[in-house]
Design a protein around this nucleic acid. Structure first.
Lengths: 361, 361
DNA sequence: GAAAAAAGATAAATCGGTTTACTTTATTTG
DNA sequence: CAAATAAAGTAAACCGATTTATCTTTTTTC
């Protein structure tokens, strides 16, 4: 039965002795069809293993249940989880996701967007290579594709956006570290500074300044695409005298966490014993390594759902209305790397307010 | 110009004063069109920003340039990279990839495959939840979808398959560790045993037995879905007396590497100093942590390319011909975790033979 | 029981391309 | 120069669904 071609709606119509229009009606839930006909059609469908071809269906309907999702790369589990969540949420809403990777190149980004546009996607979700002012976002606007920008964007823009609340998460870390009695903290980021990293620094320092101006905060960012990141951190560390060494390090990215961790280990500085460590962007390995590492977890799943929800809402409103910025609440997973030698606490910190929605300009 | 509807081939035809058929011919490289007409059509295309709608095009052509790719999950960077590579290779061949995640559930797997089939994909690449004997593979065969099975399959099957050469990679590790003078090695895997893990154990032990029967190999696998993996390893370790402790551990999965690493650290056993560690499935963090970890890297990129290549070949042959099993060569990235205290070697080990192709039954 | 209204079914048009079969125009051949 | 051949172009059919407009049948109303 599966030899060669698949059954079409006309095959079903013929076999059940009705017209194709009637079959279509039955399949689309039109109720003005007599029961005996419904029965015969259903039987034929079953018999032939018929399933409607979405390509033909969507061509006629003039509307494509297709959403484009574009991320910089998929080797990164964060984006992987994002795409996965997007697929899941879209599927529930009856949409199919077609994805693309920009590979951190704006050239490729616009190329991918063009191809998505060829498919007449009804909407797009973009994690821009650069930011909401990059070429990808501009092209989406040009082409008039209703879109949601994700993750690498600052709060104000012409688009709906969904990002982690980097500012607030960092403030939470500040509060937590202050509570733990730390008076000298190093903020470190080994990757090129992005809007997200800026917000993280900002959130941490501004909160801390208000809380206790006496707490010393050092900030070490490798803006440039520095090769030997461990080296840069090492050099910086060398400048501390034995007494004014920071008692805590807040690593502002996953990669940075790794860099800090390895440099501390190389120097035989015990994490948690001599220096507390908090990472941004939680990962599997952080809970399995020893000591396990306290880290801010981004709500990937929620961000994905929110992105789809925002897109569908906008689609329903025909793209009209004010852009909305969604800031999703992060969670601080407290683990061994911030246990002072005496303490044995372990837990999870999450202010219970729901995510914030800020109405844009 | 981008207000509302997009230009169709008929708009182009009208604007350039020719028929739609002529426009179609020009776009599809038919040469029997006069230059002046070509020029006018190209101008109109440019002017209207026309791009053919693949949905309409593929409907008429009866052939979809669509490939289904199904992986268990995307949070895992290995599968992320795989999908990414598949997309890249498919794109080069003029195919669009639609993907899905089975989330380790066979229910979902068959559901996803059904939906892909609805789209009349011309072929599928599947990383099965279970194996080539699972429900997904069976359904693909039933539906008559030409497919390639990837990664979680044993060498013999009715499908074209692409896997890492786990057997040989492990043999390489065996050889390397023997060369380093290790006489007692622990093989550890913390995840449920799969075909891949079996091949890794097999490859290691069979090679070692041939090389030197006097070398002691302990194998510790948690077949069951054990919660406290570190605990199981710890208990096992406790049974060693001070003198018969293994001098090297070969962790058979990425996760296992992490488990071993953290348990050794907890016991203050220095990696590389007291015990050498080799991991299977390389990851970013392994080269940044200290000491950096020697690991077998799977050739994800190559596997992805190979999968697409195999699929396209089979598609070209109309699905006919013997199934071919592709075993892709892994690379052992040698790092600090296997440096004996005296040595300072660092390097990369890769026998220079090309990947093996074994003709199936 | 005839006319009007409602219900049920369908032929044909449509979506945006490609392809076939045919016509028109240009070129070559005898 | 007419006939044959080749080149260039197009109208119409088609892919597989949905939708519109129309037609047929059944039910209701007077």
């Amino acid at each position: 039965m599966e030899s060669g071609k698949r059954a079409t709606i006309h095959d079903v119509a013929r076999q059940s002795g009705v017209s194709a229009a009637t079959v279509s009606k039955i399949l689309n839930g039109v109720t003005t069809v007599k029961q005996p006909n419904v029965d015969r059609v259903m039987a034929a469908i079953e018999d032939l293993g018929y399933r409607a071809d979405p390509v033909a269906s969507e061509l006629r309907q003039g509307q494509r249940r297709l959403i484009a999702a574009i991320v910089p790369e998929l080797n990164n589990p964060f984006f992987g989880a994002l795409i996965s969540g997007i697929e899941d949420a879209a599927e529930t809403a009856g949409y199919k996701v077609i994805f693309g990777t920009s590979r951190e190149s704006e050239e490729r980004e616009i190329d991918v967007i063009q191809r998505m546009h060829d498919w007449r996607v009804s909407g797009a979700i973009l994690v821009p290579v650069q930011s909401e002012r990059g070429r990808g976002a501009a092209l989406l606007a040009d082409l008039g594709i209703t879109s949601v920008l994700l993750d690498r964007v600052s709060a104000s823009s012409a688009f709906d956006t969904v990002t982690a609340d980097n500012f607030r998460a960092s403030a939470d870390v500040a509060q937590y570290l202050a509570e733990q009695g730390h008076r000298h903290i190093l903020l470190h980021c080994a990757t090129a500074t992005s809007e997200a990293v800026r917000m993280r620094v900002e959130g941490f320092t501004s909160f801390m300044r208000r809380l206790d101006a006496g707490i010393r905060i050092d900030v070490l960012l490798n803006d440039i695409n520095e090769q030997d990141k461990r080296g840069v951190l090492g050099q910086h560390w060398d400048r501390y005298s034995t007494l004014d060494t920071p008692t805590a390090v807040f690593a502002l990215s996953q990669h940075s966490t790794l860099v800090v961790l390895s440099e501390l280990r190389r120097r035989k500085i015990t994490v948690s014993g001599q220096v507390a460590l908090v990472g941004f962007d939680d990962a599997d390995w952080m809970q399995t390594t020893w000591p396990s590492i306290t880290a801010v977890a981004q709500p990937v799943e929620i961000m994905a759902k929110q992105a789809i929800a925002a897109l569908l809402t906008r689609l329903a409103n025909d793209g009209k209305g004010y852009p909305i910025q969604h800031l999703e609440r992060c969670v601080l997973n407290i683990r061994e790397s911030t246990h002072s030698n005496d303490a044995g606490r372990i837990g999870r910190r999450n202010l219970d307010q729901p995510r914030t929605q800020i109405r844009g300009e």
